[in-house]
């Protein structure tokens, strides 16, 4: 039982309310997409879940208990948007992934674990010896995923993980996300501004605007019969809807 629940979550910075009474559930083993425009509060919601933003109201639970904000056991992990900023430029890939492995175990065991994780995200284990600047954006994002997996999370929050990448490597990262979900049964809150990307990876979708959740439900339902004007507006704005034919 490792369901991630947001219950009436509110986050305020001074006078501005970034997240306003959001209730949302990420069921076990499911990928939930969270869409919205910049400033809609979707990233703040993610940061609140992992303890990077203070809660003003409501609560966030994982498997019925509050998400631990102290200690080294962190069953909720986050992958950030910009892989150029989320990896310490001075740390080798191996140390970076190893740092996230919960303490304990032998040195050899940790090294084996790092190798296993790198292979899991389709990186050559030899990568462990290099610093991030030697890797491409897509490879870095896969290192970030390996690091998140190293903490043995029950749920991963992915915050716009493809939007800083070049078009040609986005596909590889999205394929990996789907594979991890299918093979490891990993639950994920997948944040994106791109409806087509969310459609591809998520079974459920939630739409945020001005800090509030305006609509949520199964992806196919929300995208075919949107119930809220803003969802319709978002759908209408997806480029390529009007002129492009479907790819064979």
């Amino acid at each position: 039982m490792s369901e991630l629940r947001f219950e009436d979550v509110t986050v305020r910075y001074g006078r501005t309310t970034a997240v306003d009474g959001v209730s949302l559930t990420v069921p076990e083993g499911a990928v939930v997409g969270l869409v919205g425009e910049s400033g809609s509060g979707k990233s703040t919601l993610a940061r609140a879940a992992v303890g990077l933003a203070p809660l003003t109201g409501g609560r966030i639970t994982l498997g019925g208990a509050p998400v631990p904000a102290r200690g080294r056991s962190r069953p909720l992990q986050m992958v950030f948007q910009d892989p150029y900023s989320s990896l310490d430029p001075r740390m080798t890939v191996g140390r970076c992934v190893a740092e996230a492995i919960p303490p304990g175990g032998s040195r050899a065991g940790r090294r084996a674990e790092v190798e296993r994780l790198l292979e899991l995200v389709h990186l050559n284990p030899a990568c462990a010896a290099v610093v991030p600047s030697r890797l491409s954006g897509g490879q870095r994002q896969r290192v970030a995923l390996a690091r998140a997996l190293a903490a043995r999370p029950r749920v991963i929050i992915a915050d716009e993980i493809t939007s800083a990448l070049d078009v040609s490597v986005q596909g590889a990262v999205l394929n990996l996300v789907r594979e991890l979900q299918r093979e490891l049964g990993l639950a994920m809150l997948f944040i994106s501004h791109n409806l087509a990307v969310v459609r591809y990876v998520a079974s459920h979708v939630a739409v945020m605007r001005h800090g509030r959740l305006v609509e949520q439900g199964p992806t196919t339902r929300v995208l075919t019969e949107p119930g809220h004007d803003f969802t319709r507006e978002l759908l209408a704005a997806v480029p390529g809807r009007t002129t492009r034919r479907s790819t064979p």
Partner: peptide
Amino acid sequence: RDYVAAARTMG
């Protein structure tokens, strides 16, 4: 930078 945030989420 996000790597500091990442380290914080690792506890």
